[in-house]
Design a protein around this nucleic acid. Structure first.
Length: 109
DNA sequence: AAACTGACTTCTC
DNA sequence: GGAGAAGCCAGTT
């Protein structure tokens, strides 16, 4: 039986991630700050790794700082992540994203 | 309860 | 610019 209960931290992460508009990306650190846990970028990655809301939470829109795509669980999964981002209008070059163009609430303008 | 792990971040060489 | 190490947080075992 599914007694799977989730922590408030994870719920907060998913909530912040699903808030990311299509065609834009946010870094793990950004999410951590949004939920009130600055520096918990690692914890955010952990929450996404177990992401049970794979449908509601576009984890592929979450990237590393600087604009690096980061990972996605498996080695080959990272490539899929890039494809998804490009499909949404995000320009990914060599695993790097233009934050000034696809940054969620930063660097644009 | 303690220790390990991990989709991170930043500094230094 | 690339590689290595340390620091940080939350979850899982």
């Amino acid at each position: 039986m599914p007694n799977k209960k989730y922590s408030t931290f994870e719920e907060a992460v998913w909530r912040a991630v699903e808030k990311i508009p299509r065609g834009k990306v946010a870094s793990y650190g950004e999410i951590a700050s949004l939920i009130g846990r600055p520096g918990a970028a690692r914890a955010v990655g952990n929450a996404l790794n177990k992401n049970p809301h794979l449908v509601t939470v576009p984890c592929h829109r979450v990237i590393r700082s600087g604009g690096s795509v980061g990972g996605y669980g498996g080695p080959g999964e990272t490539k899929r992540k890039i494809e998804l981002l490009e499909a949404e209008g995000v320009e990914v070059v060599g695993g790097m994203i233009d934050l000034k163009r696809s940054g969620w609430r930063n660097a644009s303008r």
